[in-house]
């Protein structure tokens, strides 16, 4: 099955298909550190001027540091909530005896594939009604709740692979089910917890629609809304600056990606992608 010729052709076709991606991300990194030339696509010189947003507050914008802090709080809380609630609920659904278990699993699966974006308007009204509109807390709760069905499903899958014998011998040794879960089972599914945290971190760090709609004011802004604000300004867009903000924004995701892209491949493969 060694086919050198067809292999070369495949590589060429794939390269051509992927060309836009190469160009997109090549100029991303290039433009961030260079002065654009007026008559050529190649830059004139190296510069750090685009990074001025780190030290000075851009006009009409909140400070980048407050925005970053907001984003960190938002993503951190979402990850924490999703992790804790998924690992308990996933365990209950995977291992504990309860009435209506199959119905619960069915509902979970239903929600798992349900397009949650279409609920945006109802969520907007609900948050206004309960007074959580335009607060980071509101967006955190909503984002976490929408991620939960996926998280629970993933965790349930990981729990399902843990041999029952561990649990049985734990119970035999006199431990309560809670102790068994906490001391014996949780350590078995660290890979699952890691995978879910990475996934929900990337998903919430990049989240744009929810904070944009549910917490638009400057004090609550996350980096996505901040960057979108810069992008939608009517004056000529300064792409160098925007890409620098973008690189600053994407840095944590990139670090995660470099170390975990193979694991990520598996999660997305598990039916995770909620985006188009």
């Amino acid at each position: 099955m060694e086919k050198h010729n067809s292999n070369r052709i495949s590589t060429i076709i794939l390269f051509v298909l992927s060309l836009p991606l190469f160009i997109l991300y090549f100029f991303f990194f290039l433009d961030v550190f260079t002065v654009p030339s007026t008559d050529s696509i190649w830059p004139e010189s190296f510069t750090l001027v685009h990074w001025r947003f780190l030290t000075e507050t851009l006009s009409g914008k909140p400070s980048i540091w407050i925005t970053t802090l907001n984003t960190l709080i938002f993503s951190g809380c979402v990850v924490a909530i999703v992790l804790v609630l998924s690992s308990t609920a996933g365990y209950a659904l995977s291992r504990l005896k309860m009435p209506y278990r199959s119905q619960l699993l069915g509902t979970l699966l239903l929600l798992h594939s349900f397009p949650s974006v279409s609920l945006l308007i109802a969520i907007f009204i609900i948050l206004q009604m309960i007074g959580l509109y335009d607060s980071l807390v509101g967006v955190i709760i909503i984002k976490a709740s929408l991620e939960l069905p996926f998280g629970i499903w993933i965790m349930k899958g990981f729990y399902d692979t843990v041999p029952w014998e561990i649990e049985m011998s734990g119970v035999q040794d006199g431990a309560s089910r809670f102790t068994v879960w906490y001391k014996l089972i949780l350590p078995q599914i660290y890979p699952g917890l890691a995978a879910l945290s990475i996934f929900s971190f990337i998903s919430s760090w990049g989240e744009y629609v929810l904070p944009f709609v549910l917490a638009p004011s400057a004090e609550q802004q996350t980096l996505s809304v901040y960057l979108a604000g810069l992008l939608s300004e009517t004056t000529a867009v300064d792409y160098g600056l925007l890409k620098a903000v973008g690189l600053f924004y994407m840095l944590p995701v990139m670090i995660f990606y470099i170390f975990t892209h193979e694991k990520l491949m598996n999660i997305y493969g598990g039916g995770g992608g909620s985006k188009g």
């Binding site: 100029f27 990337i202 996505s224 994407m250």
Partner: peptide, 27 residues
Amino acid sequence: FRSLWLIPRISPSVLYVLLWRDLMDHS
């Protein structure tokens, strides 16, 4: 190649669109 094609999905949406906007802009 598979890792390359995964990058748009993990890129924050705003940034990803920003890159396309620049690519397709006048300059």
